[in-house]
Design a protein around this nucleic acid. Sequence first.
DNA 1: CATGAATGAGAGTTCATTCAT
DNA 2: AATGAATGAACTCTCATTCAT
Lengths: 229, 229, 229, 229
Amino acid sequence: MERSADPDSEGALPSMARTSLLRDLPATQRGLRTRDALIAAGRKVFERMGYLDTRLIDITQEAHCSSGTFYTYFASKEEIFAAILEHAQEDMMHPGMPHVTGEDDPASIIEAANLAYFEAYKRNAKLMGLLEQVAQIDPEFSKLRQHRADAFIGRNARGIADLQRRGLADPEIDPMLTSRALSGMVSRMAFNYFVIGDGEFDGSRIPMEEVVHTLSRLWANALRMPVTS
Amino acid sequence: MERSADPDSEGALPSMARTSLLRDLPATQRGLRTRDALIAAGRKVFERMGYLDTRLIDITQEAHCSSGTFYTYFASKEEIFAAILEHAQEDMMHPGMPHVTGEDDPASIIEAANLAYFEAYKRNAKLMGLLEQVAQIDPEFSKLRQHRADAFIGRNARGIADLQRRGLADPEIDPMLTSRALSGMVSRMAFNYFVIGDGEFDGSRIPMEEVVHTLSRLWANALRMPVTS
Amino acid sequence: MERSADPDSEGALPSMARTSLLRDLPATQRGLRTRDALIAAGRKVFERMGYLDTRLIDITQEAHCSSGTFYTYFASKEEIFAAILEHAQEDMMHPGMPHVTGEDDPASIIEAANLAYFEAYKRNAKLMGLLEQVAQIDPEFSKLRQHRADAFIGRNARGIADLQRRGLADPEIDPMLTSRALSGMVSRMAFNYFVIGDGEFDGSRIPMEEVVHTLSRLWANALRMPVTS
Amino acid sequence: MERSADPDSEGALPSMARTSLLRDLPATQRGLRTRDALIAAGRKVFERMGYLDTRLIDITQEAHCSSGTFYTYFASKEEIFAAILEHAQEDMMHPGMPHVTGEDDPASIIEAANLAYFEAYKRNAKLMGLLEQVAQIDPEFSKLRQHRADAFIGRNARGIADLQRRGLADPEIDPMLTSRALSGMVSRMAFNYFVIGDGEFDGSRIPMEEVVHTLSRLWANALRMPVTS
DNA sequence: CATGAATGAGAGTTCATTCAT
DNA sequence: AATGAATGAACTCTCATTCAT
């Protein structure tokens, strides 16, 4: 299993590109600059006010341009939001995955992957919250979100099946269903921890490492992996 | 552990009653009938069109009354939605908990509780989806949802601690954090299964019992409960 | 001159009766009681919230009756307001006029009349303010107000002409025009003092007697009446 | 005393500017034109239909623009009314004051000032009537109106005190209270003559000059100024 | 006479989108 | 490419008035 990970947030870039929501980049330098300003402003405003409460005029004001200019680059709020997600994904896609050698024991690999996932989530927490919100509103983004999740679920399912083959995991559980459950557990926890709790649970700060450690142990336990520690 | 359950959906009735969103019931029979008609119509329309796309006029038309009448009973869309939730909760609160005798082994209890939870979820799947949507939009309902979740998490945490005390669960894991993770796993799975997948995963129908069974087994494994089967 | 007086507030009862806004009194005792309750409640609410901001439901609630009942007695907000004015007029019509003997000097008579006028105004200040407001809104009440004013203006004009005939007042001024000016001066002052200033001018309390005295002196001066004091 | 004048209508421009009801002017020429069109249309419609009966749509229709455009320039009916007043004030502030030399006798000065006041009032009679109406409805405008009045009252009070000092006026009367009374007399008369009577009293046309002359004579008499004519 | 639920026309307001400059 | 004024459909909400009970 290469990564523990998230059914709800990553691996979407390829699917993004396929979306009808993205168009060609502007030709001129000036155009690129304006587009970037709009994307930066959009992210800022969305994160501040939420997707629904954001009016296009809020974005253009933040970007110091007119409302007419907006339509030179984006056809709608959805489109700029898709562009923002795509922009952010470059960061999301390089979560600094730990170098994993074949010798590392499976439990360590799981923990390392979960940690990398949490760290990437942390950097984009507000945006992840926005995606969650928009996915509830716009089916297009719901699909997008689902697509990402499925990529992770599939990857983790393969990892689980691999462990079963190597006799390191409970052979009776269905790898795919198990992956759905455990991937969901991790991503939901990240959402609750960073988006809802803003780094806390019930108002008491719990170190991220402890959360990741507990999740990883539960993950390993759930698979009935041999105890290593 | 009396119930396995859901951090996101149940046990909210008491907190609902406290909500500022609810007002006194109408005095006359006729008034009660109209109010009930509005609530039924509201649920129907919300489930059909989603919260945001529903206009008050859609509800009043479905309820065969004028828009003015709506305001006799509710001050806003939020208020009728809160009333709809409260109305549905009576069902949600009696999920037909299985009779559990002291002799039942813990794993069976967990599975029975998870099954009851899934069955209750199924009956109100569309509404649960709506709540998820509204919670992303309206902080009032986010709080409500959180409140419910916390009740379940707390209950499950006590169950986990109990098992630890009886030497039936991994003593090293934190009960509260573990409960957060596993409760989230179950409720998220129910959401994906019923709301997103509409009883399917990836377009292929998987029996609910199988989902519940896998979740329960993962739950038991995660706690390192002794294998029973 | 019998009274100094007001072009804006008194002497309207007869004209009121002619108004289309008043209907027959209810037949039964119970009906009379309800009507009185509505009138009392109406005055209270109008004085508290102003004419425009008062909704009929505010009045019926204050009167502890249903909105349907209102229409048993009044056809509209205007009608109840007319009834309230009529009700109050009985007080306005008996302002406790000082006994004036033929021997009193004219200046004293003027001052006594002005004082009586101010005292009556004071007792009904809020209502006078309301009338002023409603007269600006509803031509029916503007006419009513004008009618009252004219009665006073006419009376005072006759007083002025009488003084001219007796050689006690500037013979060059037109009695009617003069009466308009001086009556307006007094009534406007009362309005500013009681309604706008709430018994003050510029936030500093000035005794009513002083105001009345100044007005009376100006009145006498304006007519070039022989100095008596 | 430079001007006799009105406690209810002039001298408000500075205070207007301070009002929260006014915002920045539009940037472009086109914007200014539209704003001006709205102000002109607003005045026209207000004068035709009265403040309360005017709907925003009446104004935008008169100005040949959409209702959305209205909100580009004004946030409410109050705001456009404030702008209309401010616009009109430039005229109200230059009532063509007569040139007064030091040699003119006080009575002539009073009469000239009163005449100028009446002429300015005449040009803006409908608007003055509106202000009277709105002041009864909206405390913001009541304050505004009061502010203007106070400016005049203060000015006239200083004029009266000056006459007293020069031995030309009854030393026993309080200048401020007297100014309140006489200023009110004049402004009320102007209101009755132009707004209520539309240039008449009781349906018979009386020349404005006669009204002004009578008021001026009463003013001089009231102060016991030496007879000049 | 009293009730209070039901009505529905009508006003204000927002904001994505267009387009002449 | 940029501007920002103009548009107008769409929606919410109020409240005087009616009428069955």
